[in-house]
Design a protein around this nucleic acid. Structure first.
Length: 463
RNA sequence: GUCCCGUUCGUCUAGAGGCCUAGGACACCAGCCUUUCACGUUGGUAACACGGGUUCGAAUCCCGUACGGGACGCCA
């Protein structure tokens, strides 16, 4: 049997971090087993679903490199098929028409709560349809079994069982003829030939009821795998105050997609002591049975650490492109081809020090400034009168030095020695003059990236 | 409230009855490296929720308790 998985988001918001992980697990699982990974957009809630969110989700999946094997299926196009299946269930006696009003349902809910049991909503289950009130269009309810138990062999949660007496008769077709979530999911998963349903564990209890539809239709069950949810650092539901939540936000905050995927993969799944895995390794090693059962907390610090690793390993041209795009958003810089060249030239030194693309761009900003540079207070402190005098002399030396790292390094050391100073006492004022900061990549690399003309201009501006 | 699921360092995890004096990673602390900041490197603090069983032996199996999460919609 060829494995077919799917990711089925509803376009009522951007792709959430939990969704990213669910999509990733589905993707990795299908790739690991040489199967297919499909996408279904669950846009049956016409009120809240938007095209913009659909696009946004698609963009995020592309950004993450989770490519699908077929064009997405839009659930809203399948209403007729859902109704058809509901009709078949009705004809086969597995479902019935329910004429309850919302008020009656509320009353049943209350009563069940008072009796400390689950509501069943089954008053029309055995009632004569002839008693149906005129002018009320019925919803269609599934007949849940009353005796025995339903057992789900979950790939993640293990054997999960519930007494059938706990099950209610859920609605599969609303009174307006539209399908409910639990119904359309089953029909679509079946029709799409999905073999493995990997989704958030918030759907686990739905599964017991969905199973009844498969049984009623005589369809083969897919395997289920319910992965635990992601919580915020404090164990509570992930919320805005914790930090980024959607793929878009992580992207904006300068995280690389491969770092986010690596982090999310390791969250709730482990393979020995392996912490860093690229996509190929992930596909090779991932399997659903290795996923833990307990919810995991989001740890932004660990993600950031992983991101730093991936930035260091990333291609310089790619990073330069990302940085220039971010710098272009800023109004305090003069970004031209010269500055772009400097960014590219200094990228090897810059990327060693940045944990996110935001930090990387910030650290490169000085390359796109014009004199006089804005000075951080600590940098200004490096430029005492005698330091300025020293820099003027140093400028004269640099005017005649070859602009290569070895030559500049030698020149700087010779200069410091001649002045009876430590190298740091020369490098720090120079760094301040050139960058406006006390932190930067190695000073030789900065000199080379800036070029002689700009270096002398910046030294002149503080002298 | 009812049902389902879970619980190893602060966090993510390794661990499938003896290999555990419980390993790794992040974070934290200290040292080294050093032209700054990082990186790197060396070392350190730190966990089997609790209580009963089973067993020669339990982090690993069973039961209970506590705590946490999820689900209980004509939402998805």
């Amino acid at each position: 049997m060829t494995v077919r998985t799917r990711f089925a988001p509803s376009p009522t918001g951007p792709l959430h971090i939990g969704g990213v992980r669910t999509a990733l697990f589905n993707y990795l699982f299908s790739r690991h087993h040489g199967g297919a990974f499909l996408l279904r957009i669950e846009d049956t809630d016409r009120e809240r679903s938007t095209e913009a969110f659909t696009r946004s989700i698609l963009d995020s999946l592309d950004w993450l490199g989770l490519e699908r094997d077929q064009a997405p299926l839009f659930q809203s196009t399948r209403a007729a098929r859902h109704a058809e299946v509901a009709r078949q269930l009705l004809d086969a006696g597995h479902a019935y028409r329910c004429y309850c009003t919302p008020e009656e349902l509320a009353r049943m809910r209350e009563q069940a709560a008072a009796e400390k049991r689950q509501p069943r909503f089954d008053v029309w289950r055995d009632r004569d349809p002839a008693e149906a009130p005129a002018g009320v269009s019925p919803a269609i309810r599934l007949k849940a079994p009353r005796e025995g138990e339903t057992v789900v062999e979950d790939l993640v949660q293990g054997t999960v069982r519930v007494a059938n007496a706990e099950l209610d008769d859920m609605i599969i077709l609303r009174s307006d003829g539209s399908p409910t979530y639990n119904h359309s999911v089953v029909v679509d998963d079946h029709d799409m030939g999905i073999t493995h349903v990997i989704r958030g564990s918030d759907h686990l209890t739905n599964t017991f009821r969905q199973v009844q539809i498969y049984r009623g239709m005589g369809w083969e069950l897919p395997r289920f795998g319910h992965v635990p949810l992601i919580h915020g650092p404090d164990g509570a539901k992930l919320s805005k105050r914790h930090g980024a939540q959607s793929a878009i936000e992580f992207r904006e905050q300068g995280y690389l997609p491969e770092a986010l995927c690596n982090y999310l993969l390791r969250l709730g799944w482990g393979h020995g002591d392996v912490e860093v895995l690229d996509r190929a390794e992930a596909i090779r090693l991932f399997d659903i049975d290795g996923v833990g059962r307990a919810p995991a907390r989001m740890d932004y610090a660990k993600l950031t650490h992983l991101n730093a690793l991936y930035i260091r390993a990333a291609d310089d041209d790619r990073l330069t492109h990302e940085v220039l795009e971010r710098l272009a958003q800023r109004t305090d810089l003069s970004l031209g081809s010269i500055a772009a060249g400097r960014v590219r030239a200094l990228m090897p030194g810059l990327k060693e020090r940045a944990r996110t693309l935001v930090e990387l761009a910030d650290s490169a900003a000085f390359l796109a400034r014009t004199v006089p540079l804005p000075m951080e207070p600590k940098a200004a402190a490096q430029l005492a009168p005698e330091a300025r005098i020293m820099l003027r002399e140093l400028g004269q030396v640099l005017a005649g030095t070859e602009f290569s790292v070895p030559a500049l390094d030698a020149a700087l050391r010779a200069f410091a020695e001649a002045k009876g100073r430590k190298l740091g006492q020369v490098a720090q004022p120079l760094r301040a003059a050139l960058t406006g900061s006390t932190m930067s990549p190695g000073i030789d690399a900065v000199l080379v990236a800036l070029g002689r003309e700009e270096v002398l201009a910046r030294i002149g501006a503080v002298g």
